[in-house]
Design a protein around this nucleic acid. Structure first.
Lengths: 348, 348
DNA sequence: GTTAGCACTCACTTAACACGAGTGCTAATT
DNA sequence: AATTAGCACTCGTGTTAAGTGAGTGCTAAC
């Protein structure tokens, strides 16, 4: 029994129909709707074979067939036609580029919104982060009579400010001097590298202003942690409720629960970060509550090192073709916006 | 027909029972469960009166009664006992304080999470923002050979960094000079005040480095906008699905839709900002999709001017008493954490 | 190898019916 | 005059039974 051309045509018909209608597909439907030039009885025989091979299944005896995860996998890997974006979709993407978005979190929000609006699936997206958070510059500025401003810039241009309150603020020259010293001491350091040796050296050199050291180290730590903490934005969670496969509230609820936990999303996105495009179908998901969902992720790159991921979650009966084309378009898009952003100014 | 003591007792019983069970409450239930010393028949008579007065209603003839919005209003304003936090709740709040949270957005996330976990309602919270975004300080720092760093601090200590790329970077002294000049020119300005007069003056004075001016103005604008854009965090949306009043998927969906739009939430929270505590019951909500929800908001203050709001959404059959006590506790809590945060350092 | 025909399965719908919680009214009781 | 017991009535809910239809698998004919 081999997966001949006709079987593939039938499988394709089943998948297309099921993606569209969410109803099990019967042999007669295929015979009528898709002109394969064979009768429903023949189709029935082929379907029986396809079931035996594991590509389709029956939700219950005497019902039509639905694709199995394996069926979808075959579809995604070999059968699916790559779709081009249609006009409306292109317009949508365009409108996002042309708008003057100058903050990363805002860009992320809007991107997620656009994708979920376009696909009707739930979308999440992680902000671009670099792998190594190293300190590029440290600056100390006098702010007012009781506080100085500490500015930390990491190598991937992630920035952070901290106001440090002091009982007495040194004069400007002195601050400049300390600033220079700090810069030299910490430049190129990753957080892990700031060990006791460095600290005690700084402690010694900065003995005169040791009131400064504690808040500075604290600020440094907070900055490095923040630089490494991945921000995730989600949009279109409501779409889940529109799919008949989640008309069972308890299912919908458990999926929601999972999607609401940022850690889970971060882990999921991080795992897929190495691939440009990643499709996880149904049981391929490790998360229990996502066993009947599919997840498609695409990674965008700002540089080799700095990247983020967009993910889409929907029922396994998902319009893979559309989603992938939208994701590809959006990755292109977001890379463009981010590049223009980082040319002008970069925000922490 | 007056709202005598007995009627109030009965109303209270109905509300308590309905909050707990979500089932219409009948006269026999009250007679059995609450020892009011009167028979079910008497209760029936009183209930008939209460219905005429508009405090309760029947979902359909020959069913028990449920509280009307008016009934809840009376309950919230006059009948409800202020509850104290129980041990578990106090422990929860404590654990939040004691952890070392040093970033506002993280604090917000965690706060929202804690409240939704504690109450089982959907929670959202807006970050603290000052009313007036005025510029306190502007600084320009040399960053590397092709870029300078612009630091803007607003009066409520909101900060923003911007990298400005230049074809040629002036020497340090010159940058310092420009920095000082900018500081003087823009200090105390609100965005609206930066009109053509100021710009042309700066344009004139900075003629030599006019390549700087455009990005600076752009950065200024972005900063002021960001300072005024309110960030909202939400948690526990999944809880909505647990309430029988939203077992109708389409209802749940339309509520989700509303809650997902940050603008709506921001508007809602902003409207309640002047009150310490605000309760909107059912039809008192302007938003159509929230007509059978109640919203309770509490405002926390960092200073007179800088405040944010926590909001809880649930069915009108909400445990008002619990929610209000949790909110009060949390406001206290968050104010404490924020104050300690702003003493050490403040993040944009 | 393909197809027509047919018996069979099974989810889904509808109607009928009984059940029970709850009400409103009336008459008896306190 | 207020309260309560009693009773008829309403109406949502749950159950059962029958009917419907989409779909299958098998067999025999083409």
């Amino acid at each position: 029994m081999s997966l001949n051309d006709r079987k593939i045509q039938i499988l394709q018909a089943i998948i297309n129909d099921y993606i569209e209608t969410a109803e099990p597909v019967g042999s007669r439907t295929i015979a009528k709707k898709y002109n394969l030039g064979i009768s429903s009885a023949t189709i029935r025989n082929e379907m029986s074979d396809l079931e035996e091979m594991g590509f389709i299944m029956q939700p219950h005896a005497s019902s039509g067939r639905i694709p199995s995860d394996l069926g979808y996998r075959l579809y995604v890997d070999h059968l699916m036609k790559k779709r081009e974006l249609n006009l409306e979709e292109q317009r949508y993407l365009q409108s996002l580029i042309s708008r003057d978005i100058n903050q990363i979190d805002y860009l992320m929000e809007e991107t997620a919104k656009a994708i979920s609006a376009l696909t009707n699936y739930t979308t999440f997206i992680s902000e671009p982060v670099g792998q190594r958070a190293r300190i590029k510059q440290i600056r100390l500025l006098p702010l007012d009579t009781a506080s100085v401003l500490l500015v930390i810039v990491t190598e991937d241009n992630f920035m952070k400010n901290h106001v440090i309150k002091l009982s007495s603020v040194p004069d400007e020259d002195k601050i400049f001097e300390i600033s220079m010293y700090l810069n030299q001491a910490f430049q190129g350091c990753a957080l892990l590298q700031i060990d006791q040796t460095v600290i005690s050296r700084v402690q010694h050199e900065l003995g005169e202003y040791k009131g400064l050291l504690v808040p500075i180290l604290k600020a440094l730590q907070a900055t490095m942690e923040a630089a490494e903490r991945v921000q995730v934005h989600m949009s279109g969670a409501k779409n889940i409720l529109a799919f008949p496969e989640f008309s069972d509230i308890s299912r919908a609820k458990s999926l929601f629960q999972t999607l609401e936990e940022k850690d889970v999303l971060v882990t999921l996105l991080e795992e897929c970060k190495s691939n440009d495009l990643h499709v996880l179908i149904g049981s391929e998901n490790t998360m229990q509550s996502m066993k009947d969902c599919s997840v498609i992720t695409a990674t965008y790159k700002l540089s080799d090192d700095t990247r983020g991921t967009i993910g889409i979650v929907g029922p396994t009966r998902m319009d893979y073709s559309q989603v992938i084309s939208v994701l590809n378009g959006m990755v292109h898009n977001i890379e463009k916006v981010l590049r223009s952003l980082s040319d002008n100014h970069k925000d922490g």
